[in-house]
């Protein structure tokens, strides 16, 4: 399995927006995944020493199988070293610097067939949004990070007024109508949404989904053309957060990953399980509508057929 494709998630956001808190949360809730996090500064992570299995130089190994590596001065080198190692991690998290352009970092997946860009998470400080958006030196940078985000997570909403949070949320929604926007509290956000679903594509139990998220799942043995599926999913933005499907169509078996509008489809070299799972916000269409939209029994609306790219 040394040549397996590794999903990569980029966590972007200005200094102080809560990237480190989120990283800490994901490392503590890896749920069996061996995550490797490339971080700017170990010290800031403040990992509980009881969780540290080993530390040498610029690398900390955690008891749960996760690893933190310091990026140092060169992300290129740090990422290449992780990918040249065996065994590969199950998932790579990159903590982008506060002024990085996450879209440029995402480019690494474009020249490495063994990397799959899972998604870019951009954290937005609800309290500081106006200041960041108007910063004379950083405003353009800020807009780039927002533009690149596949998930926009609003942090510090407990410190902001409800009206402030609402206003920031509205501004972001106007700017990026198809990108999911959600509130993140103290770095806590469901790892299944941010990092994706496990290999079988099924969640262990419905109860694990928090009350403010909705899950829909199906088991489909009939062929589902991948482009039709992509088109259908795109109509669910920005309510759909995460999807995974292991299905087949005329071209063969495939696995589809969807993360906040970023989707990828790749061939699946085993018998497809027929699993199909969606996690969305509470305002995602109801189950009947999803069934209607996504299962192959329902004929595709004519306009969507014509939009299907080939």
């Amino acid at each position: 399995m040394s040549n397996k494709v590794v999903p990569i998630t980029i966590i972007a956001g200005f200094l102080g927006t809560g990237k480190t808190s989120l990283l800490n949360h994901l490392l503590a809730h890896a749920e069996g995944r061996r995550l490797t996090a490339l971080v700017n500064d170990f010290g800031a992570l403040n990992i509980d020493s009881e969780l540290i299995a080993a530390q040498n130089g610029n690398q900390i190994s955690l008891a749960n199988g996760c690893v933190c590596c310091s990026i140092g001065d060169d992300l290129t080198l740090a990422l290449a070293q992780v990918m040249n190692q065996t065994p590969r991690p199950d998932h790579i998290l990159i903590e982008a610097s506060g002024v990085a352009d996450p879209a440029r970092i995402a480019g690494f997946a474009q020249v490495d067939r063994e990397l799959r860009l899972d998604g870019i998470i951009t954290l937005v400080d609800a309290l500081a949004h106006q200041r960041h958006a108007n910063d004379p030196h950083l405003a353009d940078n800020y807009q780039r990070q927002i533009a690149a985000g596949h998930f926009l997570l609003l942090s510090k909403t407990d410190l902001a007024s409800a009206a402030q949070t609402h206003s920031v949320s509205q501004q972001l929604a106007a700017q990026k109508p198809t990108t999911p926007i959600a509130i993140i509290e103290h770095g806590v956000f469901d790892a299944k949404v941010l990092l994706g679903l496990n290999e079988t594509g099924l969640l262990p139990a419905q109860a694990e989904i928090k009350h403010d998220l909705r899950q829909w799942s199906a088991h489909m043995t009939a062929p589902v053309p991948r482009l039709d599926l992509l088109n259908s999913l795109s109509t669910l933005a920005p309510h759909l957060l995460r999807a995974k499907a292991v299905l087949h169509d005329a071209e063969g078996a495939y696995v589809l990953h969807y993360a906040g509008g970023q989707s990828s489809v790749s061939p699946f070299d085993a018998s497809p399980s027929g699993h199909f799972v969606l996690i969305g916000k509470p305002d995602m269409p109801d189950d009947a509508s999803l069934e209607q939209l996504l299962t192959p029994q329902a004929p595709l609306p004519a306009h969507r057929q014509t939009e299907a790219r080939q």
Binding site: D74, L75, T76, L77, L79, A80, Q81, M83, N84, R104, G107, F108, Q110, V111, D112, E114
Partner: peptide
């Protein structure tokens, strides 16, 4: 830029800068 250097290090397995 970095993209090219990354690709070179990945396809050769060499730490070109290391």
């Amino acid at each position: 830029g970095q993209l090219g250097m990354y690709m070179a290090m990945r396809t050769t397995g060499l730490d070109l800068l290391g």
